[in-house]
């Protein structure tokens, strides 16, 4: 037991396995309706079927492409706008409250508007991914540039560094870790919004598969596609967390 205390991840895995076994037995015994919760073994076996039927990997790349496009757009607009707010203090102060409010607002509910404008298309997905992605990038870019050490700026000035070099060689490298935090949050929100909209409008990649599996009453397939979305979120979360740690070594 004391050894297990030192290995919480093993305890977690054992717990997960035990829950899966209990669920398997409960479904077999008829305590849990198979139509509501499938056997874990059936869910695992449903993965190849979903892949063959719905092209899980192909749709993963559709969602990935939408997320990448929305994030790229958010970066192209968010970083320069964040820099503008940093350079123009009054605008920064004037808009920071608005940006925070917009970030907290339920922007996902705007999707009917984009459906009306762009139709049921990839443009709607990208637009809906762009909004929650751009706001944290703008906020964190400004915060990162505001947080650049005065000592570094003074060193730059003492070397008579030009305004352009000051930005590219001192300010931007110092602000990169903070900006990246904004990018990480932005990418996660972009992904979440895109999958949510895919699910709501039955269009696009992984979200559409979940919706379609549910409409077919393919319960193991529904669970398998949901688990696939969880894996993709974990992959993004873990991957960006690693990059952030690498950028912020201390």
């Amino acid at each position: 037991m004391s050894k297990l205390h030192k290995m919480p991840i093993v305890v977690g895995l054992i717990g997960l396995l035990a829950c899966a076994l209990i669920l398997e037995y409960s479904v077999d015994a008829g305590w849990v309706m198979q139509l509501v919760v499938p056997r874990p073994s059936d869910t695992i076996l449903a993965f190849p079927e979903v892949q063959a039927d719905m092209d899980l990997f192909g749709n993963f790349f559709v969602t990935l492409a939408m997320t990448a496009a929305a994030t790229l757009l958010a970066l192209i607009i968010g970083v320069p706008f964040g820099y503008f707010l940093y350079r123009n203090t009054r605008y920064g102060v004037a808009y920071e409250g608005w940006l925070a409010a917009a970030f907290a607002a339920p922007t996902v509910l705007l999707y009917p508007l984009f459906l009306v404008i762009f139709g049921r298309s990839h443009a709607t997905l990208i637009a809906m991914g762009f909004i929650p992605g751009a706001i944290p990038i703008i906020i964190q870019t400004r915060q990162g540039l505001l947080g650049v050490s005065k000592t570094l700026l003074n060193v730059g000035r003492s070397f008579n560094v030009s305004e352009r070099d000051m930005f590219w060689k001192i300010q931007l490298p110092s602000a990169v870790p903070t900006i990246f935090t904004g990018i990480r949050i932005g990418v996660m929100y972009t992904l979440v919004n895109i999958v949510a909209i895919e699910y709501l409008i039955d269009f696009g990649g992984l979200g559409r598969i979940v919706s379609e599996m549910y409409f077919r009453f393919d319960t193991p397939g529904t669970y398998a596609s949901i688990i696939a979305v969880v894996f993709v979120s974990v992959f993004f979360y873990w991957g960006f967390g690693r990059v952030e740690k690498w950028l912020r070594p201390v």
Partner: peptide, 8 residues
């Protein structure tokens, strides 16, 4: 993970 995906 987007929680909406658990709606089904």
């Amino acid at each position: 993970t987007p929680k909406i995906i658990f709606l089904p």
